[in-house]
Amino acid sequence: MMLNGQNTSLRNDWSLEEIKAIYFKPVLELIVEAATVHKQYQATGEVQVCTLLSVKTGGCSEDCAYCPQAARYHTGVDVHKLMSQDQVLTAAQRAKEGGSTRFCMGAAWREVRDNRDFDKVLDMVKGVNDMGLEVCCTLGMVNEYQAEKLKEAGLYAYNHNLDTSAENYASIITTRTYDDRLNTIDNVRKAGISVCSGGIIGLGETDEDRIGMLHTLSTMEQHPESVPVNALVPVKGTPLENQPLVSVWEMVRMIATARILMPQSMVRLSAGRERMSVTDQALCFLAGANSIFTGEKLLTTPNPDFDADKAMFQLLGLSPRKSFKEEAQPVVG
């Protein structure tokens, strides 16, 4: 398929110049192009509803400049040990009843360690999987063995965001490297787990950094099945507490570009949605977003609740995507 001379077939060889040309298109033209690609590869009236639960909160040894869970920052986030399986399964059941088809569990760890807590997480994964939900985890770095254990337990997806460009990474995080991120994604991929990897805008990065991150994602040997686009929620006590809020047009530009570059991926409208109007979110859906996180909190930051999202779906004529629907849609044309 050709759009304005641009080949939109599935590609992994995008150049920085090509991505820059897409990203800097006039925004309305960009939305139209992304919507056309979205309609070709995705069910446009379908949005996956996901819930993210913090199963172990705070006390993390990392220094991610945006994160209220880093132990070194004073953000008012209380440290909580790993939740019990019963607590997690109760939350998963509530999410399922609220319309979620994917349940993601996040733990404030730098990396997974082979200990009793990891064994408990494996049991949680089994339990949520048995409920018929796509189960996702974000636990920090994992090695090949740990990724295989998660797969055996029934893990459907693993989230490990790049956050920003390789060039900007050290200004945001110093306690691990960009290659550490990429290695974890490789380990997850080798285990046969669906990859969820995107980033955050509003960290003080440049447009070139946003383009660079999209280039890294879209030139992977296999595109991530899920690409979350997060807007920074500035939290008092973190180094980025005074960052200006990201505009809806910046979100739309990122979502639309991601949709064109990675047409088969789920593009997830993630953090920052709480301050978006229904109109803002409708623009994001038009630009190619086809997943949201719902529930009162997204880890530790505010998020729209189930009822508000249900009303939005009714207004916009959207239907929830079913669990375990193939992440990669058949190529059309």
Rank of each mutant, 00 (worst) to 15 (best):
T51P: 07
L52P: 09
Q6D: 12
T175E: 04
G127N: 03
N290D: 11
L315R: 05
L203V: 07
V27W: 05
M266N: 09
M141L: 14
C64Y: 01
E97S: 13
N290L: 07
A153P: 12
D163I: 08
V88R: 04
L30N: 08
I260F: 05
L298I: 10
S323Y: 04
V227M: 06
V49F: 05
F24T: 15
G317P: 00
K25Y: 12
E326V: 06
K120H: 13
R11L: 02
L30R: 10
L133M: 11
C136F: 07
P224K: 05
V32G: 03
D119A: 15
A289P: 00
D209I: 07
L139S: 01
L214S: 09
L150A: 11
E326C: 09
I292S: 01
R268I: 13
M141D: 09
S218F: 02
N12H: 15
C64S: 02
D209C: 08
K322I: 12
E62V: 00
E97P: 00
E18G: 03
Y145A: 13
S194P: 03
R253I: 00
E144K: 15
P330M: 02
N303V: 02
E241R: 03
T51R: 06
E46P: 01
M251W: 10
L269Y: 14
Y145F: 11
K322T: 11
M251T: 04
N143K: 05
